[in-house]
């Protein structure tokens, strides 16, 4: 299963690669990374239907995670991939907005990787 992680913090790549190194090794999970909403859209346009799951931060400079979510769910990709939103702010408005725009799940930082792994297991 291919997962696209969108976050403006570059170290998120190292972290995910370490945290899921077993899954990456046995090829049950494959990660690609984009460091902005714009980059994520470019990747999705170039590799249509490759990513099954998108994990996106909400607060990013430039295009926000919610804007990206809107683009993915409303304008591109039919059927659209699953999108999980991650934010440092667990506030109701972001949550509702994300749900309204079609987010499949909503996580708050700091990310609980054990929980995330279980969620991945349910999908693949």
């Amino acid at each position: 299963m291919k997962i696209l992680v969108v976050d403006d913090e570059r170290d998120i790549q190292t972290l995910f690669e370490q945290r899921f190194r077993k899954e990456i090794k046995d090829k049950s999970l494959e990660f690609v990374f984009a460091f902005s909403g714009e980059d994520a859209l470019i990747y999705l346009n170039q590799h249509e239907h490759e990513a099954v799951l998108i994990l996106s931060d909400i607060n990013m400079p430039g295009m926000s995670g919610l804007e990206l979510l809107g683009h993915i769910k409303q304008k591109y990709h039919k059927p659209p991939p699953m999108v999980m939103m991650i934010t440092a702010y667990g506030d109701a408005e972001n949550f509702n907005m994300a749900k309204q725009l079609g987010a499949d799940d909503f996580l708050t930082k700091p990310v609980d990787f054990t929980l995330l792994k279980e969620k991945f297991k349910l999908i693949y």
Binding site: L15, Q18, P110
Partner: peptide, 10 residues
């Protein structure tokens, strides 16, 4: 919070 998350995670 962000760097602290990284520190904890790593």
């Amino acid at each position: 919070q962000n760097p602290l998350n990284f520190i904890n995670n790593f």
